[in-house]
Amino acid sequence: MAKPIEISNLSKTFRGKKGIRVDALRDLSLSIEPGEVFGFLGPNGAGKSTTIKILMGLITATAGSACLFGKEISTAQARLSVGYLPENPALYDFLTGREYLGFVGKSFLMAAADIEARSDEVLGLLELRDAANRPIRSYSKGMVQRLGLAQALLHDPDLYVLDEPMSGLDPIGRALVKDIIRSLKQRGRTVFFSTHITADVEAVCDRVGVIVRGKLEALDSVEHLMRSGIEGYTVQVSGGAPEEGCGYDFRPLKGDGREYYVPKDSFNRFIELISAAGGKVELIETRRKDLEEFFLEIVK
């Protein structure tokens, strides 16, 4: 089976006024596996949206190639199995939400009955049923964002390309979108989404790619990053003699409890010493670099 997204040596150079050259994307190679949720992380202006616009055929690459399910991105057929949410979507505001979904459904050659049933479903999912028959021009920014996601979900595609899907949403809306992405993963769909918010990636992604100034600087699984980011442990101990903490700083807790910070490499030795002194380990908490620190290290 062809991969949902296959990008090879993609570059994009813009020529601004006075001939100024901007390398928005430099030699990007990336492939996304079926059923994967991939977070495309980068600061503003890093090249995330440029990559997505190239994938959706809105702009052309200066060099390199890309395919969606093995089909060249320059063809309209390549987009048949894709649900795309643009960044800050602009949808024809003279239509109602339901009419817009009807238009999108027809463009994907869905049957009228399917369009109606799926429209009801996605409008309900995105909590837009009450506003469905109102013109889009009367929607708030968050509602437009949710309708944008609804139209991407409508034809239940195999691949979702979401450009900043949480942008403009309140915390409830953000949680809703995360739930939707998780449920897409459970149903085996592939999700490629861009964001500059690390917590979003941590919450839902299998893999993350970090792009900075048009170059892919890191590519790894979120799980591996989380594990490799472990710096040490916070250990709460009761009983035993405090001096048997073998030189580790501690903070006294209520009663005879103490809380130690133990570096990752000394953990086993520390446990042995505490046990030998008759101390009892009450709680161990991992202290790790979060994705944000990892991201900031790369960006800097």
Partner: peptide, 17 residues
């Protein structure tokens, strides 16, 4: 100007159509 093209041309339409 209103960026409707992003939404419409990312659907499976070619630009000629």
């Amino acid at each position: 100007e209103r960026r409707y093209t992003y939404s419409v041309l990312s659907l499976p339409f070619d630009r000629g159509t």
